[in-house]
Design a binder for these strands. Structure first.
Length: 424
RNA sequence: GCGGUAUUGGCGAAGUGGUUAACGCACCGGAUUGUGGCUCCGGCACGCGUGGGUUCGAUUCCCACAUACCGCCCCA
C-alpha cells in the first residue's frame, strides 16, 4: 500500500457518515431547544492557550499535546479539547460585553487531537461535541447543562444512562481539602504507586482517581471533599441536587470523582453507561462541570463558565442496532432503466424531472443491459423502476414497475406529473 | 512512552522453503437477442503490508520499519 492514513486517524465512509450526521443533527436540535448557538473556533491555537487552561500537570499537556513549531517559529498545538479555544474566543471577541445576553450559550462539534497510542475508539484525531455557558453563577445553569446532556443522549436512544455528580468546591474549599488530602496521604507515601507519588504534591486530587489497586485501598479512607466545602460551595451543590430532585432526575454523588483537567471547580458530572460496547461496568460517555476562573486565566474578566464534552466515536458505538440499521439502509425512489442508445435523451429528461419532483432518482451510467440495470435497482432498494425502450419512446410512454409488488403499468410521458402522488 | 498479537484479491479466509496461491461472499458476463430477488456456467491475486537479509530458490525463515487490534498509562 503506497499511502496510508496517518496513525490514529480514520476515514468516515458511507454509509457510516449517515450515523455522524444523525448524531450531529440531534445535537443541534437538542441544544437549540436550550437556546444554545454554534461557535466555530480554529482547530489549532497557540500552545499556551491549552497549557494555561488545562494545567501544567495534566497529562494532556505533559504528554498528549499534538504540537509543533510552524514556519514562523510559533509554538502551535492542535486542540486537544474544545473548551480552551472557546474561552479564548469568548475573551478575544469580548463576548462578556454588556450587549451580550448572559449567559452566553454556545456549542461546538469537530475534530480534536491527542498524541497518544491509538486503541479502539481512541484515535489521535477524534471528535467531540461540547457546550459552554458563560456568565452565570447560578446552579440553574449547572443543572440545565446536565439536563441538556441527558436529553441529547436520550434522544439518541442510548440506554443505561447513569448520572454521577460531585463538587470540587470553590478555591478556598479546594485549598483546604488539598491540604487535608496531603496530610492524609503523606504517612502512606512509601506505599503509593509511582504515579501517585509524583502527583501527591502537584495535584493530590488526582491520586483519588488512581487505577492502582493499592492506591484505591489507601484512598478509601481519605477525607472527602464534601467535608471541606465553604458555606457558599455547600449551598451551590445543595441547590444543584435539589433542582435535580425537582426535575425527578436520578443521580448518585461520587465524592471521589475528579477531573483530568485542572480548570474545574464546583459542580462536576459524568454521564455513564452501564455495561456497553465500551466495556464492562460503568463507562463515561459525557463529562463536564463548572470552570469559574478559566476565563480570567486566559486574560478575560471574572466570568464563570460551565459546560460538557462528549466523544463522538464512543457515542457511535452506543447507538443501538436498529438505529444503525435504519441509518445505513439504502433507499431510492426511482431507478430509470434505458434500453438502447436511441432512448438516452428521454431517459435524461425523465431522470431530471423525477428529481425536480424531489424523488431520489438513479440511472445507469455504464451502458449495461436491462437485466443488469434491474439488478442495480434491486440492490439500491429502489421503490419504482421506470423503463424506457424504443417502443415506449415511439409511443411517448414509459413503463412503471412497482419493485415490491412486481406490478408494471404503462404511463404516458405527458402524465409524468401524476407520479407526484405515488410516494405520498 | 512500554508490552503482546496480527498484516494473503473489493471483503472474509485456507495454505506451502520450489515452476497452477484453495474456498466463500461481492462484482462482471452468459444461460434468458427488453426486466430484479432463485438456479447453473464462466471470469476475477505478473501477487501474499513495506524495505532489507538468509537461500540455488521465500508469500512461507530472520531483521528493521509501517499500520491495526489488545493490555499498561491516561482518557473521550
Amino acid at each position: 500500500m503506497k499511502y496510508q492514513k496517518p496513525k490514529g486517524t480514520a476515514d468516515i465512509l458511507p454509509p457510516f457518515s449517515k450515523e455522524w450526521q444523525f448524531v450531529e443533527q440531534n445535537a443541534r436540535e437538542t441544544f437549540a431547544l436550550y437556546n444554545y448557538e454554534e461557535i466555530r473556533t480554529p482547530i489549532f491555537e497557540k500552545f499556551e492557550v491549552f497549557s494555561r487552561s488545562a494545567g501544567d500537570t495534566s497529562d494532556i499537556v505533559t504528554k498528549e499535546m499534538y504540537d509543533f513549531d510552524d514556519k514562523g517559529g510559533r509554538h502551535i498545538a492542535l486542540r486537544p479539547e474544545g473548551t480552551a479555544g472557546v474561552v479564548r474566543a469568548f475573551v478575544e471577541n469580548k463576548l462578556y460585553g454588556p450587549e451580550h445576553q448572559k449567559p452566553v450559550k454556545v456549542y461546538y462539534m469537530g475534530p480534536m487531537f491527542r498524541y497518544e497510542r491509538p486503541q479502539s475508539g481512541r484515535l489521535r484525531e477524534f471528535h467531540q461535541i461540547g457546550v459552554e455557558a458563560f456568565g452565570s453563577d447560578s446552579p440553574k445553569i449547572d443543572v440545565e447543562t446536565i439536563m441538556m446532556g441527558m436529553d441529547f443522549l436520550k434522544k439518541l436512544k442510548v440506554s443505561g444512562l447513569k448520572l454521577v455528580i460531585n463538587t470540587l468546591g470553590d478555591k478556598e474549599s479546594r485549598d483546604r481539602y488539598r491540604q487535608a488530602l496531603i496530610d492524609y496521604l503523606e504517612p502512606h507515601f512509601e506505599e503509593l504507586s509511582d504515579d501517585s507519588k509524583a502527583r501527591l504534591h502537584k495535584n493530590p486530587l488526582r491520586v483519588l482517581d488512581s487505577k492502582d489497586k493499592n492506591d484505591q485501598k489507601i484512598v478509601e479512607n481519605a477525607p472527602e471533599i464534601l467535608d471541606f466545602l465553604t458555606e457558599d460551595a455547600q449551598k451551590h451543590f445543595t441547590s444543584v441536587k435539589e433542582e435535580l430532585d425537582t426535575l425527578g432526575v436520578d443521580y448518585v454523588v461520587d465524592s471521589s470523582m475528579v477531573r483530568g483537567l485542572d480548570y474545574y471547580n464546583h459542580t462536576i458530572f459524568e454521564i455513564m453507561i452501564a455495561d456497553s460496547p465500551l466495556g464492562k461496568g460503568d463507562v463515561t460517555i459525557c463529562a463536564g462541570g463548572r470552570y469559574n476562573g478559566l476565563v480570567e486565566e486566559l486574560g478575560g474578566p471574572e466570568v464563570s463558565g460551565v459546560g460538557f464534552g462528549l466523544g463522538v466515536e464512543r457515542l457511535l458505538l452506543l447507538l443501538n442496532a436498529e438505529t444503525q440499521t435504519t441509518l445505513q439502509s439504502k433507499q431510492l425512489d426511482f431507478y430509470v432503466v434505458g434500453i438502447g442508445d436511441l432512448v438516452q435523451n428521454d431517459v435524461l429528461k425523465v431522470v431530471h424531472e423525477l428529481r425536480q419532483m424531489n424523488f431520489v432518482t438513479e440511472q445507469d451510467y455504464l451502458d449495461r443491459k436491462p437485466k443488469a440495470q434491474f439488478k442495480s435497482a434491486d440492490k439500491l432498494n429502489a421503490k419504482y423502476v421506470v423503463t424506457i425502450g424504443e417502443s415506449e419512446m415511439n409511443d411517448r410512454v414509459f413503463k412503471l414497475k412497482d419493485m415490491h409488488s412486481g406490478e408494471e403499468r404503462t404511463v404516458a410521458l405527458s402524465e409524468i406529473n401524476t407520479l407526484k402522488d405515488l410516494l405520498k
